[in-house]
Amino acid sequence: MNIVVAMKEIPDIQQIRIRNRKPVTDDVPRTLGNIDKNALEAAVQIKEKTDSQVIVVGVGSSEVEDTFKEALAAGGDEARLVVWDGELESSQSAQLLAALITKIDSVGLILFGEGSGDNYSSQVGSRVAQILGLPQVGYVNRIEIEGSTARVTRSLEDCEQDLEVALPAVIMVSSDINTARIPSVTQILKAGKKPKEVLAANELGVAIPAAQVETISNLAPEMERRQISVKTISDLVKALADEGFGGGR
């Protein structure tokens, strides 16, 4: 069985600076999102118990091949990548990823993080399932493969739900499914030698829909200090209550 893990190339969030409330992403190194790494770890753990291969797929900048070395170091066996110059909205990413996955044989499982590390729209996994006509389960924090099905646990707001889903299926994992392993020096050095295929979007033979969502503004929320001074604990309690904190009384 091939386990496909879809990962998104994003700017390293820790290195983004905010100027005039706008994120400055110029010259920020590219990396992979943390929840995507949880999805990869889940795939590697399944691989260690079953006879399977982990294939990482992604769409990204001209640096995408370099970016995905991290995924190959952390347990991916091979990479299938598409270079796309510019912004992509979720519907476009889903079309490209679905086209990439269609080219892979014997796919038993397709894993996503529940949201990307930058926009967190949580759409792409569902869209890919829709395009490929596969069942999908989200917010998963446990996966057990049993023959041609997967038993999964979904972590919902007020309950944990156990489900059985027929394979192949699309599963979106939450960050608490595991702790992603840290690759060793040897794994990092060997990552660049693992098989990879890097395609241009027009080589996939799929029509990419025009973008339908336009980002009008992307600003950090304004933080204002209220400059409230208090002299006694009771004044502090009252001030917090006035600001809407300290409920329950």
Binding site: D66, K69, E70, I182, P183, S184, I188, L189, A191, G192
Partner: peptide
Amino acid sequence: SKEEILIQKMARDYAEQ
């Protein structure tokens, strides 16, 4: 190089975690 950046990050992650 990307490999050097990843090794640096690996050590930083392990040290912090």
